[in-house]
Design a protein around this nucleic acid. Structure first.
Length: 853
DNA sequence: GCAAGGTC
């Protein structure tokens, strides 16, 4: 039997289809897809199925000095048991094994890992290696016709990276965590990629903090020619003879402004026209795809997650690639042809096909890993995809269109005008040939119209404006700019950069979007800069890349490189250990500063954001237990401390991060005070315990008021419903007998609530109006409102797509197997689902179940 | 429980 091993299931399926002439059949073994035809089997791994780690005697952080990790052994252990088991099983009976993992360094290492699993159970089989950069008929056949061997040197280069990253990362992470006494979930992590990325953000923040704004002025004029008018800006020649618009001297600006105001006309001194060619963009690699998706509102993580779903569904090519040059066997005409007749894309595809020559653009980076991201010839219908998936799909399709479209042409018109000794200029631009913009609407094509004027002509000068401005500090990195910068610096990979940023959020190093560093992050970077400069600098990656090159070229060996790196880390630890306490203190102070709101009104200690044992957030005093002062926080979301500070209480404002439900809470002391001052406003009897209330036993079970009860009839105790403002900022309609009766209905956090004279026929309560913004919102009867809200929640709450990682296509597949809602998924046996749904592993199902709570 | 790199 012949066995073929690929890096992922998707590749296994496609290669099996090509080699078998579409006759391969899939069967599941241990929940893993195995493709079979004739005497052949093909199985896909899931990337690395083994991982490096220290032996178990090193696993207790408190028992082992971090420095000991430097000399510790490093072992490989299987992480994907089912896949490893299945590979072993198949390998036993194989005469020949072909490694067909991705054509890049990491692919070579994954291939070598597969080789070792095979050799472990079968020392006779012939093992060879095939390489191809896109899974197409031609490339796959020619690779299999002429197989090669595993490049063990290249794989060893990858192993050097694994070992060095583990040793440096684990030793330094444990050292910082132990010195700051941060064990458990809140450990303090450091690594070759994450820490230089964090330093980028910290450095930018330092620039922003050190920035000293400078005042300047700009002067504009409006010019009229016949019916048309346009804006022009004052400029002068600076010391170097360059055109400058910013006037740094206020008195001079004022003088120019006055002179222009006194003039009534300007004479055209010169007119220059030029046309500019605007070349279409290069094909998408991962970074440029993320950048484009971010310009239409998708975070890096979301964009990648949607792209992965579209890839798994077969609509786009592999989304993790560095390549920006289409492979030779991609025939643009053939691919465009697949879009003709399509409702959304047909017309554009047909227009593009009408041209004689089609030459796709090329980017600077050409790699062997995968083709640039482009649509496949299989088209989804709009209904098959969610709105977000469709938007991202359309972006990928239109980018492909753009890369085979013509250049655009702009006409630039520059007019210089003179008013006495002063000069004004106007820059006009018109898009004369839309070219690729016609099929790719994601770039701005704003025009600035300046009418045709002639040299020597006089134009009426009106509306002189002077604007006083300030130089601005540099802007924080956005996520996609950060990913681009990482790529430029050579840190991280196409598959990991977006995860690294996510990791910085999870570790409490950055907050908000665009990311801003916490005090902890600054302290970690400072500690790195002082004691382990290599790990905060991209130089460590650069050195590692050089060493890996040398290993791959056979000039150095793995042990030599790893040994040098370990020695370097030893020296880092010589200094670190001496300053252990100092480093720990600084980290602990920073951690506290990240949680500090301001002074406690009772004891003068700091008020901190804390977490109760049940997981909810509140504000408590650092002087606890001597001072027991507390303030509540809203019960939804994760608190973010803002820079804004309450003038009355000297406390920082708090924002609650809860995805789409994010809101600014403000000063928690003010919120509590407001609630204490606000009188409850009674609106009627409590349906649970008030006058004329119905005992729960005889009530309709659908009634939202029928919360968990023991079924015993409740005595009418004269409870009344009132609009209440709570100290944690939320507002509700609740019973005046609280806590004896806990009947409650939610109300919006913002806006003034007006109690109208109209009453709900069903519940007898007054209809409510909420005033916030221009139009009042008719909330109506609070019971009816809550019922409608719950119904809406039920409709969307059971939606499988609400689970992160489940796309429309996957939800459809799950539904076909009888898993239609979140609760179905929770009740299901992961193994059973995996066996019934093709391409889905039990592990993945378990992850979804965990996410669904 | 540490890293970074695959994949989902």
């Amino acid at each position: 039997m012949d066995l073929i091993i690929t890096e992922k299931d998707n590749a296994a399926r496609r290669i099996a289809a090509i080699l078998s002439g579409e006759s391969a059949e899939v069967e599941r073994q241990n929940g893993v897809n195995v493709y079979r035809w004739g005497g052949k089997r093909c199985i896909g791994l899931s990337g690395h199925v083994v991982a490096v780690d220290f032996p178990s005697e090193y696993s207790d952080w408190r028992d082992v000095e971090p420095v000991e990790l430097i000399g510790a052994a490093v072992e490989k252990t299987p992480t994907q048991e089912n896949i490893v088991r299945t590979v072993r099983l198949l390998a036993r009976d194989a005469n020949r094994v072909t490694i067909a993992t991705d054509y890049d360094r990491e692919g070579e290492l994954i291939g070598k890992e597969a080789y070792e699993i095979v050799r472990d159970v079968n020392d006779g089989a012939e093992i060879d290696r095939v390489r191809f950069s896109s899974i197409t008929d031609g490339e796959v056949h020619s690779a299999f016709d002429d197989p090669d061997e595993i490049d063990f040197d290249l794989a060893a280069a990858g192993e050097a990276r694994q070992i060095i990253d583990l040793v440096w990362g684990a030793a330094l992470t444990r050292f910082l965590s132990l010195s700051a006494r941060q064990l458990g979930d809140d450990f303090i992590s450091v690594g070759r990629v994450q820490t230089p990325t964090l330093k980028l953000i910290v450095d930018r923040e330092r620039e922003i903090e050190a920035f000293d704004p400078e005042a300047y002025w700009e002067i504009f004029a409006n010019l009229v020619k016949g019916e048309e008018s346009f804006d022009a800006q004052y400029f002068y020649r600076d010391e170097d003879g360059n055109e400058a618009e910013r006037v740094w001297d206020g008195q001079r600006a004022e003088a120019v402004y006055e002179t222009l105001r006194e003039a009534s006309e300007a004479r055209v001194e010169s007119v220059s026209r030029r046309t500019r060619t605007d070349a279409p963009p290069a094909p998408f690699n991962t970074t440029q795809f993320i950048r484009a998706a971010s310009s239409i509102g998708y975070s890096a993580k979301r964009a990648m997650s949607i792209a992965e779903d579209l890839y798994t569904a077969g609509y786009i090519t592999y989304p993790r690639t560095d390549n920006t040059v289409y492979p030779e066997d991609l025939d643009p005409r053939e691919l465009l042809d697949a879009f003709t007749g399509n409702r959304t894309f047909g017309e554009d595809a047909e227009t593009l096909l009408e041209r004689e020559e089609i030459t796709p653009t090329e980017g600077d980076e050409e790699t062997t890993d995968h083709p640039p991201i482009h649509p496949t010839e299989e088209l989804p219908t709009k209904g098959e995809l969610s709105d977000a998936e469709w938007e991202v799909y359309e972006l990928v399709v239109r980018r492909f269109f753009a890369t085979v479209a013509d250049s655009a042409r702009w006409e630039h018109l520059k007019v210089v005008l003179e008013v006495g000794e002063h000069r004004l200029k106007a820059n006009g631009k018109r898009l004369v040939e839309p070219g690729y913009h016609a099929v790719y609407p994601y770039f701005s094509t704003n025009e600035n119209v300046v009418p045709d004027v002639e040299e020597g002509e006089s134009l009426a000068l009106t509306e002189i404006r002077i604007e006083d401005k300030e130089t601005q500090p540099p802007r924080r990195y956005g996520q996609s700019r950060l990913i681009e910068t990482m790529e430029e610096m050579g840190i991280g990979t196409k598959s990991t950069r977006h995860n690294t940023i996510e990791k910085l959020y999870d570790r409490g190093y950055i907050e908000n979007d665009s990311p801003r560093p916490t005090k902890l992050a600054t302290a970690v970077v400072e500690a790195g800069e002082e004691y382990a400069d290599r790990v905060v600098s991209e130089a460590m990656t650069a050195q590692l890349e050089d060493d890996m090159q040398a290993i791959a070229a056979g000039e150095k060996d793995l042990d030599e490189v790893a040994g040098e790196s370990r020695e370097m880390l030893e020296r880092v630890f010589d200094d670190l250990m001496e300053s252990r306490e100092e480093i720990g203190d600084h980290l602990q102070k920073s951690l506290k500063a990240d949680k500090t709101l301001g002074p406690c009104p009772e004891s003068g200690h700091d008020l901190l954001v804390r977490r109760s044992r049940r997981g909810s957030y509140f504000v408590g005093c650092d002087g606890y237990p001597d001072c027991e002062y507390t303030l509540p926080l809203p019960n939804t979301g994760k608190p973010l401390i803002l820079e804004a500070t309450c003038e009355e209480h000297d406390l920082r404002h708090v924002k609650m991060l809860a995805g789409r439900g994010t809101f600014v809470h403000g000063c928690p002391q003010c919120k509590a005070d407001e609630a204490d001052e606000e009188e409850d406003r009674v609106i009627g009897a409590c349906p649970e315990c008030g006058e004329g209330s119905i005992p729960p036993s005889s009530r309709d079970g659908e009634d939202p008021a029928a919360t968990a009860e023991d079924g015993q009839p409740v005595e009418a105790d004269g409870g009344e419903l009132a609009i209440k403002q709570l100290r944690n900022g939320s507002r509700l309609v609740g019973c005046t007998r609280y806590p004896d009766c806990d009947y409650s209905l939610p109300l919006p956090r913002r806006g003034d609530i007006e109690i109208t004279d109209e009453r709900c026929e069903e519940h007898g309560l007054p209809e409510l109006l909420v005033h916030s913004g221009d139009e009042p919102w008719e909330l109506g009867c609070p019971i009816c409102n809550y019922r409608e809200y719950q119904e809406r929640e039920n409709d969307s709450g059971t939606d499988l797509e609400s689970i992160e990682g489940v796309g429309a296509k996957t939800a459809e597949k799950l539904a076909a197997a009888g898993v239609e809602s979140v609760s179905d998924l929770q009740d299901a046996e992961a193994e059973t689902v995996a066996n019934e749904v093709e391409g889905i592993s039990a592990d993945r199902v378990r992850k979804w179940q965990a996410k669904a709570g």
